[in-house]
Design a protein around this nucleic acid. Structure first.
Lengths: 231, 231, 231, 231
DNA sequence: GATGAATGAGTATTCATTCAT
DNA sequence: GATGAATGAATACTCATTCAT
């Protein structure tokens, strides 16, 4: 399967339609987004908006003109990354082997998370990230559902696996990746493998999952309430 | 197996022996620790030491007299909780069924984490928590090792599972628990079950783990470098 | 000899050239510097930056935007005053009588110190004042050297007097001026006169100085280590 | 001339008579005074009373029982040192050469100051030191007066030198000693020599001193108002 | 529109002094 | 009397956000 650029052409809304910004305004928007990606990747979400502005080569004021506040910027960034996941999902669905498709997707998403500290924090805490670009997520959900259903139909995956389990698994990998980022940045693959073994289709020794997965509404709610510390 | 109180006999120094504080000082120390547990559980580690002091009904100065800085307080709290885990581990080892012992331990530890947001943060980031009560941890490690070796000897667990995998699994559960704390606080059990299925002994469909587990030194190092965002 | 304004043309960088600040920023910078001069003159270096800000009629943040920390502000102030000394030194060199030139310079410098408690503290302690505007100092040194060499060549001053003796003498006068600031603010002139008598050229009754003067490196080092009390 | 121990048996008041403390209380008082001397010498007056107490091997409470507040402790210490000066003065008066007596005294006093950072601060600032042990000073004054009068009668010293000039000269030396304490701790001797040359009896080239010396009342007042920074 | 200057509430920490044990 | 625990006002510095230029 061909490699995929980390952030493919993910303009504001790929599914929906936003009225476009003036040419230069859009250029600034992108500069800020790139700068934010760099800065947050390196220093985490605690990085200052002044840092982002400096990296982008614009004034803070400009950042605030483009994004109402820090959370909005984080949201936008998150949306971009979800966009990348969407691309990944689409690519995965072109893989004929259903199990391989699923694992490839999980692995690619893991790599995305492992490489980006800011993204890990976005994914793991909702301090920042008010609405979390529900839009982009809306594009992603059906892809994941298809990935799973297909694999279940093929008997490649346990039948009680649900779509929302996928982001949850990514959360878990993100936590591992963050923890070992400076000591063994690849160790998250070990735990992905462990979890994949747990995803294998029902057989002797497979236990029924004691709790239902989050339904989409709960998932949405969880994303809006999880937070790290700041009130 | 009998239930266990969340924080069993966890006097100032778990394994070691400290010279006792004056009666009233010790009382205040406990008040502060309890207050910190409350406050951190509710608002996370970002809570102020002034908050802790207010909650404890003492002045900030008193907190600083007892704990040289915020990290030290967090450490002490963490030590307490590790103490609870030690007790859990000991109790687990009294269970004759090797698999049940391991799962029971993982579940209990998960409950501890699920109930305490501050603890989750302590476990997941090492920004705060300098040495992380190495002492108490030292008590815990052999217990976990025994739990695993025993289960492997009985053929109840995959043979490539390593001791450091256990805390890593807990990290993952903690991340899930945190994420869903307000929507479905128990959903972490679903992922524990999934992972447990992945821990089952080698059989058809079990994949070799692609990365070795952290060795104890790496684990130690990871604990010292993981962080959330503050520079 | 004509009187001299206390702080002559002392724009942001004395000898060097900094890119200019925005109009309003520069205005505020000056306000802060003036406020700092007032506050430090009155209450000494122990005054709070909040005090300075209040006096300047700006927020603390503004002070911190202009000067990275308290030391930097003190440095800037110190640089300004050294700038005044430079002007004094240049003026002194225009005086044909070599002895008069030297004494006039010492006296003017003494007046500067006598009038400004904050400056006395800056001069006497290096707790605050990291680099002490080495730049402006660098401008001052050759002037002092010339003043002395000239006077020595004319036989107006003892031949073992060294350039670093001049700041030391000022330190001593500053200590006197501070001590008597509220009772007899002019009494430092008495001790200047005493010292000047000691500077007179070699004659019967002049003793060889038992210790060499600090060389420039030692002077530099002394400025970096002298301190008042804070660790 | 024989050397002199730095702090000779200088119990609370040598001239006056205080009602004695209980034996053990007096012992504690001395322990505290010694500890304070050590601590202040090393870290300056900014040292904590807790530090002093720890060094003395007593609780802070005990320090406060013996000395109403930090200033009082500093005062007492200052009194002790003045006591040492008194001893020095008495010894100096036994020297038949009037000029040698004076210089020896100034040099000894300089050594005392050079060796003790805390003392320098006490002498140079009156932040701490409310009454400055007027008592012990009262003992010192006549000695200094005698030293000077004698030397003037012998024509060894300029006739306009006054008793209060002596402490002022010491202040100046203290400032130098403090400044160079880590780079050239002995350089103050250079400036003492310079000043001594200025003290030599009237001759060609001696200027009349432009300001009268402080009179004793002014001296007293200066001691009570000079201060460093804390309001 | 863009800029970056200004703002000020918020945080961890210290230390002289008081007071319960 | 001695001890050391408790107190809390004070201080330097940060950063998200607003607004004048």
């Amino acid at each position: 399967m061909a490699p995929v650029p980390p952030q493919p052409a993910t303009s504001p809304g790929e599914c929906s339609g936003d009225r476009p910004l003036r040419r230069d305004a859009e250029r600034n928007r992108q500069r800020i987004l790139h700068a934010a990606a760099d800065v947050f990747t390196e220093r985490g979400l605690a990085a200052t908006l002044d840092d982002v502005a400096r990296q982008a080569g614009v004034g803070v004021g400009t950042v605030y003109r483009r994004f109402p506040d820090k959370e909005a910027l984080v949201d936008a960034l998150f949306g971009q990354r979800i966009g990348a996941l969407v691309a990944l999902g689409e690519q995965a669905l072109r893989e004929p082997d259903e199990w391989a498709a699923l694992t490839w997707f999980l692995e690619q998403a893991g790599e995305l998370l492992a490489a980006d500290r800011g993204l890990r924090q976005m994914v793991m805490f909702t301090t920042y990230g008010r609405n979390r670009s529900g839009e982009a997520r809306a594009c992603l959900k059906p892809l994941i559902t298809r990935l799973i259903t297909r694999a279940q139909a093929a008997g490649a995956v346990r039948s009680d696996l649900c779509p929302t389990d996928i982001p949850m698994i990514e959360f878990m990998l993100a936590s591992v990746a963050g923890y070992a980022q400076h000591t063994r940045p690849e160790v998250w693959r070990r735990y992905l493998a462990l979890i994949l073994d747990g995803l294998r289709p029902d057989r002797a020794g497979t236990t029924a999952l004691p709790e239902p997965a989050l339904n989409p509404d709960e998932m949405q709610a969880a994303m809006g309430t999880a937070h790290l510390g700041r009130p």
